[in-house]
């Protein structure tokens, strides 16, 4: 009767279908890796020509003169663009981090039931507003507002773009921070409360230290969001190459430079390649930010 088992032990259609599906979904899975590598390869393909050829490290990182269209003396100093991006992102974080973390603390530790759900939905809505609409808000609402409130000639500046970016980065920071706070075991809170600590004491002395890594990740992802934002900073910064001396100065961001100049360059030209080189810089920085944030997030889970 031993042959009985052998006869039934056939690889049937279902077995082969299962294997085929496994391969198919595996391809879907690794496609994410293929795409990310593809992004690097295709941007590199256009941009490395510049980096290996015309690229001058000192000029690129330390000269504020970005004059790629100059016929006689084209220079590719990205300092002003880097400072532009950094100042807007920095100001945005200054505005946004306290509020985002505060909102996360409120949602995770104080709010309950319907109020909590409503807040979460509204923050999700905030995240859903397209960046071009934010840019439009900066242009047509914030601009006149800043001019009249601060009595300055131009309302498209670091202040304007910073506030807009801060609002755009707030949802991701709030959400990730809330997750981090929620991940702190209730046992910690109960133990501290049993010792007679008030809610705030529990939060400050127990919950916040325990959630520290997640909060750092939240801020990092917020920085990444602000750093890579394109349309809103294009429309709200004033778009002029300039190292700002106050928040009322207009600036120009890396992303916005690519967005405005790419359409006007000839494919393969030095200028065109320089824009791809800016892309490589953006890609590399956000890659590092995301990687670091992920390491911090995994830090929470390992605990």
């Amino acid at each position: 009767m031993a042959h009985n088992a052998g006869a039934l032990d056939r690889r049937d259609t279902a077995w082969y279908v299962d294997k085929a599906v496994e391969w198919l979904v595996f391809i879907g899975g690794i496609s994410a890796i293929i795409f990310i590598v593809g992004i690097f390869v295709f941007i590199g393909k256009e941009g490395f020509g510049f980096i290996l050829g015309r690229f001058d490290f000192a000029e690129f990182f330390f000269s504020p003169r970005w004059t790629p269209t100059s016929l006689t003396n084209a220079t590719y100093g990205a300092l002003a663009l880097i400072v532009g991006t950094a100042s807007v992102t920095g100001f945005a974080m200054l505005v946004s981090v306290p509020f985002s973390l505060g909102a996360a603390i409120y949602i995770a530790e104080f709010a309950t039931g319907k109020r909590r759900e409503t807040l979460k939905v509204l923050i999700e809505m905030l995240a859903a507003i397209p960046s071009v609409v934010w840019g439009f808000i900066g242009l047509s609402l914030m601009n006149p507002l800043i001019i009249s409130v601060f009595n300055v000639p131009l309302g498209l500046n670091v202040l304007n773009a910073g506030i807009i970016l801060g609002l755009m980065a707030a949802p991701i920071m709030t959400t990730i921070a809330e997750d981090a706070l929620k991940a702190v075991p209730d046992g910690y809170r109960e133990a501290a409360e049993a010792l007679g600590a008030t809610r705030w004491q529990v939060i400050r002395q127990v919950v916040l230290p325990a959630a520290k890594n997640g909060l750092v990740a939240a801020v990092l992802l917020g920085v990444g969001r602000g750093f890579g934002e394109t349309m809103a900073v294009l429309m709200a910064t004033g778009h002029s190459i300039n190292i700002p001396s106050s928040i009322f100065d207009p600036v120009r961001a890396l992303t916005a430079t690519i967005a405005t100049e790419l359409g006007e360059t000839a494919e393969g030209s030095e200028h065109y390649q320089a824009l791809f080189a800016l892309g490589i810089l953006l890609f590399a920085v956000t890659f590092v930010i995301n990687l670091t944030a992920d390491l911090f997030v995994r830090g929470i889970k390992d605990k």
Partner: peptide, 8 residues
């Protein structure tokens, strides 16, 4: 996380 302009 990659900026939209990089995707572009």
């Amino acid at each position: 996380g990659v900026p939209s302009i990089v995707h572009a």
